[in-house]
């Protein structure tokens, strides 16, 4: 985690620091243990292929959690994640880069809280947004 980011420092249209992931099959097994989701398409290649997939795929919920990390690492100690999520539009494979990105879409202050709205997504090596979503965080103010 870097230095604390403040509400005043953020501009609409600005991109937040990216988070690059690349899931080994081992990480998919770790995620199975961490999340309690033991669906075999994420660790059993034969099973995945029998269901019509090309091979193993990365859990959608893991990409969602990556976006959670992207936001957590950005908002710092004094910021808070209020809302985040994504839809699962494309499949990602193990051993391929998954780039987690976010762009500030709106800033607003309400009831003493300083909200920042963002578009967030994961991106595959072809630049396709495989999990587009949105987020709302609060940041501390310098005021």
């Amino acid at each position: 985690m870097g230095e604390q980011v403040y509400f005043e420092d953020v501009r609409e249209g600005e991109e937040i620091p990216q988070l690059k992931k690349n899931c080994s099959t081992q990480q998919l097994v770790l995620w199975a243990a961490g999340s309690g989701d033991f669906y075999q398409i994420h660790y059993d290649k034969d099973f995945a292929q029998r269901t019509g997939l090309k091979g193993l795929i990365v859990h959608g919920a893991l990409k969602n959690a990556f976006l959670g990390q992207l936001l957590h690492d950005w908002v710092g100690e004094q910021g808070q994640i209020r809302r985040f999520g994504c839809s699962y539009r494309g499949m990602d494979e193990p051993d391929q880069d998954i780039l987690c990105r976010g762009i500030v879409t709106k800033k607003r202050s309400e009831d003493g809280r300083h909200y920042v709205e963002l578009d967030v997504w994961t991106e595959n090596p072809d630049g396709k947004k495989t999990s587009p979503g949105t987020a709302i965080v609060t940041l501390p103010s310098r005021a």
């Binding site: 033991f38 669906y39 919920a61 209020r82 809302r83 985040f84 999520g85």
Partner: peptide, 29 residues
């Protein structure tokens, strides 16, 4: 029932394929 893809409860529909369309979390810190 173990944890798995969210399935229908108490009803059945004729479609066989299921996709997780997305998840969003809202926090009230």
């Amino acid at each position: 029932a173990p944890t798995g893809p969210a399935q229908s409860r108490g009803y059945s529909i004729p479609y066989k394929r299921v996709l997780n369309g997305g998840t969003e979390y809202e926090y009230f810190p």
